[in-house]
């Protein structure tokens, strides 16, 4: 049995090398979606200006807060893109994500129950899809790798499926 060690603390460079990044479209999608999510809040700020015109500072501080939240979330999403990634080894799959809170989870193939590919409407617009990897029991150890190229996702899925069937 071979399962060469990649993720040791002594080899941080290799660790960052070996993780496969998501396509650049995924970053675009995240940034655009993030901006879209902020629109309702912008309307609320406009409401502040309109309804409390005798207190202009209220509107301005609302606008400032809005701009801060927007820039901050865009910044976090931007940073997050570069630390998100997955890597396959002979016997397991590892996925990591998050910048402020960085998670790295490893699921051995012999514990995977089934896999699923999801396309959301926004995902389809950017030609992306999501690969869900399910383990048994509760949902705590399920992996969902979002923002994959459909072709890559299909390959990953069949690779993982092939591995699980040989183990069980």
């Amino acid at each position: 049995m071979t399962n060469e060690q990649i993720l040791t603390h002594s080899l941080p460079d290799i660790e960052s090398f070996s993780f496969e990044k998501h396509p650049k479209r995924f970053l675009n999608k995240k940034l655009i979606a993030n901006t879209l999510y902020m629109i309702p809040l912008a309307i609320a700020v406009g409401f502040l200006f309109y309804n409390f015109s005798e207190f202009p500072w209220l509107g301005w501080s609302g606008l400032g807060l809005w701009a801060f939240i927007l820039l901050f979330s865009l910044f976090v999403n931007y940073k997050e893109y570069f630390v998100r990634g997955y890597t396959l080894r002979e016997h397991d799959i590892t996925y990591r994500k998050g910048w402020i809170f960085h998670h790295q989870i490893t699921v051995p193939f012999n514990r995977i129950q089934h896999t699923e590919i999801n396309h959301g409407p926004i995902d389809r617009l950017f030609n992306l899809c999501e690969l869900e990897i399910y383990t048994a029991g509760g949902s705590s150890s399920d992996l969902s790798i979002s923002g994959l190229d459909p072709k890559d996702a299909q390959n990953l899925k069949s690779f993982v499926a092939g591995k699980t069937s040989t183990h069980v």
Binding site: I100, F101, T106, S141
Partner: peptide, 22 residues
């Protein structure tokens, strides 16, 4: 079934990590 480690920017420079065992 899976092992997870995580940290945050607040503890990263202290070289500490959290563990989750699924």
């Amino acid at each position: 079934q899976a092992v997870e480690k995580w940290d945050s920017i607040f503890i990263r420079r202290r070289e500490e990590m959290h563990v989750k065992f699924h």
